[in-house]
Simulated assay, not measured.
Amino acid sequence: MTNHAEELRKALGARLRGLRKDGGFASGRAFAAATKWQESKVSRIENGRQNASEEDIRVWCLKTGALEQTEDLIALVRHIEELWLEWRRQLQKGAAQRQGKALPVYARTKVFRIWHPTVVWGTLQTAEYAAETFRQVIDYYEIPDDIESAVAKRLERQQYLYRGDRIFNVLLAEQALYTNFGGPQVMRGQLDRLLAVMTLPRLSLGIVPKRAEMHIWPGNSFSMFDTRLVLVETYSAEFSVTQPREIALYAKAFELLKTSAVYGRPARELLRSALDSLG
């Protein structure tokens, strides 16, 4: 994780060096004189040995005549600073606190784009299904057992399915209908829940059949909140994407995944087949 952040910092430094030269500053000394910075600061930033601040980026773009790149470069700085949020650090006081942090993000978001290849998205989960997922999280990360409050916080997100004018675009792979959390009874309740929410007017639920032709590899699950933020979950961390160019790649991936999905009656048939498989 640290190496990846260092690589991005070096890449940022190379971009800034290019801007400095394109802006007519042949040397770091000349640029330092123009900005009233120490020459050593310019060198450290350009060689990836020091993080550039957001104000540094604004000054850099202003002095080099590259104001159109300011927003993108600031997003890259934030991305480097917040690249990885370790699950253990987030979950050290239990799972409920992390669930609570998601609520303000949901409140601000107008358009959701969600991809889950193996698990039902948290906001569509039943209490029983959610409890089983949290039980596994607590065991795996060896964190305090706060299943009841964690489930309550997760279910609190569901209010946004019914309030306001938010749009929810959700894609699940067919495997998510069969990944077994809690046994047949819990799975029946969860699949029934999916059938019920498909009627919600602002929820578009697509399912990618297991034999569907894919136009992009499935990859990790991700949640996209407007065009401001993408969260990607791994076993060790939550990967936060804020750089506009990278967010655009996730938007493109989502559109490609959608081309393999089915909706409406075909999606309901896949859900009923999964229900039938439970006996």
Rank of each mutant, 00 (worst) to 15 (best):
210 K>T: 05
232 V>P: 03
70 T>D: 05
117 P>R: 06
26 A>G: 12
164 G>H: 07
40 S>K: 11
257 L>W: 11
28 G>M: 03
184 P>S: 07
50 Q>L: 08
201 P>S: 07
65 G>T: 08
5 A>Y: 01
56 D>S: 11
265 R>K: 14
174 E>H: 00
11 A>L: 12
64 T>L: 02
124 L>D: 10
68 E>K: 01
199 T>G: 05
133 T>L: 11
235 Y>C: 06
115 W>S: 02
182 G>Q: 09
267 A>Q: 03
48 G>P: 00
105 V>W: 11
106 Y>F: 12
164 G>V: 09
129 Y>V: 01
65 G>Y: 01
126 T>K: 05
179 T>H: 10
276 D>P: 04
57 I>C: 10
269 E>T: 13
156 E>P: 01
183 G>P: 03
33 A>P: 01
127 A>S: 12
77 V>W: 01
31 F>N: 14
11 A>K: 09
39 E>C: 06
173 A>L: 10
244 P>K: 15
99 Q>R: 12
141 Y>R: 13
178 Y>E: 05
68 E>R: 01
222 F>R: 05
197 V>M: 04
22 D>H: 03
154 R>M: 08
189 G>A: 10
90 Q>H: 02
149 S>A: 14
264 G>M: 11
201 P>L: 13
2 T>G: 00
266 P>W: 08
31 F>R: 10
74 I>D: 13
168 F>E: 01
80 I>K: 00
